[in-house]
Design a protein around this nucleic acid. Structure first.
Lengths: 231, 231
DNA sequence: GTCTATAAAGTGATAGAC
DNA sequence: GTCTATCACTTTATAGAC
């Protein structure tokens, strides 16, 4: 392991930054190690020295973003369960706990909001081969926890139906993150350029409505005005 | 242009079939012309002979599937407008007209349902560079028509809000099409292996609920029991 | 840690024989 | 129309000098 603050391996940080930018813009599959070293003004061999292989570089980029995000998600979910001790947290708050950490991630990152969102979206849609199994276990654990919370918030929805609805929600999220500029182009600007906060609010309302479809009696106190929300 | 039924260019059909299968399984970016010719048991030069370039091959694969699909979509939309002459077609039926042509596409194709869905999903998420502008115009025309119909069905939703909700719906659809087997793995089989009909029914209900979120007064007769639908 | 040089394999495309 | 042979690059990765 290398200390990212030591002067010797500023190069490593530069490589990671360059890699993140290019992966966000173009996708993991089509960015070569040469693209990365060129943008980072580093030597071709630097990638292999610091990360072993190209896949090693991808794994580090993924881990650096996905691990803190999933930790934050789980922490928020636990806070939620403590707050509603005994009772079942309402749907909106569960979804909020799942997506709001994205805002914090944007603030912490050096990348622009647009690029970081694209990177995270691409990470979420990564298929098995590219991510180390430790990360995959972690992601699965997080997703299991959330699905269980959703199931409790929506007892009237069968597990099978809930699995599909959750799948739709994840798809909508990934597309929102990766293709936000596409929407702007396709609508000739009608979509506006809203802040992350506004977009997340829209997404949460959309997702909850879809998840809740056909449910007459919600589990707990979740019906009624949602004026407690700040978006 | 070549006649696909002539004996001389069975090879061309074999190449298209092989290309479709590989593009569906792995994505356009990562399939080489050699992968295609190998699977089609054809010569390397055959791709360039029949399609000019690799991009030409992709364009033909895309056009062969996207053009009839968009035509069918528009035809269904027009049928709908005739049926509701003067009045505004209800949301469910507009979304149905948008996604149901997928079922017909599956029936017509030689590919398995799973592969064809993946291919179509990948086509929908293609970014500009890879598809000829004629196809892009066609896709934009179709999508404009549908957004206008959605706007009429949901007059209470602002154009900006509607643009984002539609974006979420498209994202959910793409993810459903490309990653249906991922869901099965991730849920340890809880999601089941439903037919296309069932999945589309789920999707339509989810999408309509999301699009309709917060709308109290629908435009026309669309409120009330939806028993007229066959899914 | 950083560099050059190079290996070994893969890429899209084409000329020219048949 | 189909094939072989080949061009001109690009890819990841590594050995070895500094």
């Amino acid at each position: 392991m290398h200390d990212l603050k030591s002067p010797q391996s500023q190069a490593k940080r530069r490589l990671l930054d360059a890699a993140e930018q290019l992966f966000a813009e173009r996708g993991f599959e089509v960015v070569s190690v040469r693209d990365v070293t060129q943008l980072a003004k580093a030597n071709v061999a630097a990638i292999n020295y610091h990360f072993g292989t190209r896949d090693g570089l991808i794994a580090q980029v993924v881990a650096r973003h996905l691990t803190p995000l999933n930790e934050e998600r789980l922490a928020r979910l636990e806070t939620l369960e403590r707050k509603w001790s005994g009772k079942v947290p309402p749907l909106e708050e569960v979804i909020d706990a799942f997506v709001r950490p994205l805002v914090g991630a944007v603030r912490k990152s050096d990348l622009s909001e647009r690029l970081l969102c694209a990177l995270l979206g691409r990470i979420f849609s990564l298929q098995g081969a590219l991510l180390p199994s430790s990360i995959e276990d972690q992601a699965r654990h997080s997703s299991d926890r959330f699905i269980r919370s959703l199931g409790k918030a929506l007892p009237a929805v069968s597990p099978e139906e809930l699995a599909w609805r959750t799948h739709f929600v994840i798809g909508a999220m990934i597309h929102m993150l990766v293709n936000q500029d596409l929407l702007h182009r396709m609508t000739n600007g009608v979509s506006g350029v809203p802040s992350m906060e506004v977009t997340l609010g829209r997404f949460i309302r959309f997702a909850c409505a879809g998840l809740r479809e056909g449910v007459e009696e919600e589990c707990a106190v979740t019906k009624g005005p949602q004026a407690t929300f700040d978006f």
